[in-house]
């Protein structure tokens, strides 16, 4: 069921343009005439705006659809980037001996000890927000947890006799890492990817909510919720809070369920460190 929901979400995100065309509103199109009431308040769900409009008279449904695109693109690419970096660095730390290990392990400690949300905010204010930067920031602060686990597993695999056998055949470090160690990591890595996606989606929404993620006219679930919070607007326009919040919660829930089933299928005993 969670798979079906995710598939639905992907389809919605891919066909956002034709869908919005079908609904009849653009993602940033302001409907001053029918979207807001005479005293400037947004109108609720109805015939013209199926899920209501926001404070500028923009259609909530269309913005939700485009928000799905942002969440998926940022969430999935950040998760994949984080796992790639984590696997490479964790593999090197675990395999290339104590000197490399102590440097890389310290690096992971630094990243993990960093108040990352604060750092993300600082970086974005200095560099200026963009989708790419957001992906980079999320990936940068997520890889260390993966790296730590991959390092632990690599340290254990490194002592196996088949690694020694490969050495005795004359295999170099790179070949042993790719051919003998990496295949053992595929199962946990798959699990981490599926668990990191919801974490990255929430991370993205949080950054956008704090105003340092997706730049405002472009809709994202996070900045829609920020709009809703501004001036207590959600108190008079419940649809403005409810729909983006529901979209966000259902999406993370679906990915969490998917991650759980992937974990159960592949390795029931994987340590669970990414539960948030």
């Amino acid at each position: 069921m969670c798979g079906a929901f995710i598939l639905f979400l992907v389809l919605v995100a891919v066909f956002a343009d034709p869908l919005s065309h079908l609904i009849g509103w653009g993602p940033t199109q302001q409907d001053r005439a029918t979207g807001t009431t005479a005293d400037g308040l947004p109108v609720g769900p109805g015939r013209i705006h199926l899920l209501g409009a926001d404070q500028l008279g923009r259609d909530v449904l269309v913005r939700l659809i485009y928000g799905a695109r942002v969440s998926l693109v940022v969430g999935v690419s950040a998760a994949i980037a984080a796992v790639l970096i984590g696997v490479i660095i964790g593999l090197c730390a675990g395999f290339l001996g104590p000197a490399v290990d102590s440097v890389l392990a310290r690096l992971m400690d630094v990243v993990l000890a960093f108040p990352f949300l604060l750092f993300a905010i600082a970086l974005v204010t200095v560099v200026g927000p963009s989708e790419l930067l957001e992906i980079a920031v999320i990936a940068f602060f997520s890889w260390a947890a993966v790296g730590r686990i991959v390092r632990g597993q690599t340290l254990a695999i490194r002592e196996r006799e088949y690694v020694e056998a490969a050495r005795s055949l004359g295999a170099g470090n790179l070949r042993i890492m790719v051919v003998d160690v990496l295949p053992n990591l595929i199962a946990p890595v798959l699990v981490y990817v599926t668990l990191l996606i919801p974490i990255s989606i929430v991370f993205e929404a949080t950054l956008s909510f704090l105003g340092v993620g997706i730049i405002p006219p472009t809709p994202s679930w996070g900045n829609m919720l920020d709009d809703a919070q501004q001036g207590g607007l959600y108190q008079v326009a419940w649809w403005f809070l409810t729909f983006p919040a529901a979209a966000l919660v259902l999406t993370t829930l679906a990915f969490n369920l998917l991650g759980d089933s992937v974990r159960d299928a592949l390795d029931p005993r994987t340590e669970r460190l990414f539960a948030k």
Partner: peptide, 29 residues
């Protein structure tokens, strides 16, 4: 010079097919 190891379970990577394990020396060299 080659080695044969004590533990026939530990000395073969469980995630690889035996064709590729035996072919390792050819690939490496």
């Amino acid at each position: 010079m080659q080695m044969i190891f004590q533990d026939p379970y530990g000395s073969l990577n469980p995630h690889r097919r035996i064709g590729s394990i035996i072919g390792d020396p050819f690939a490496i060299h």
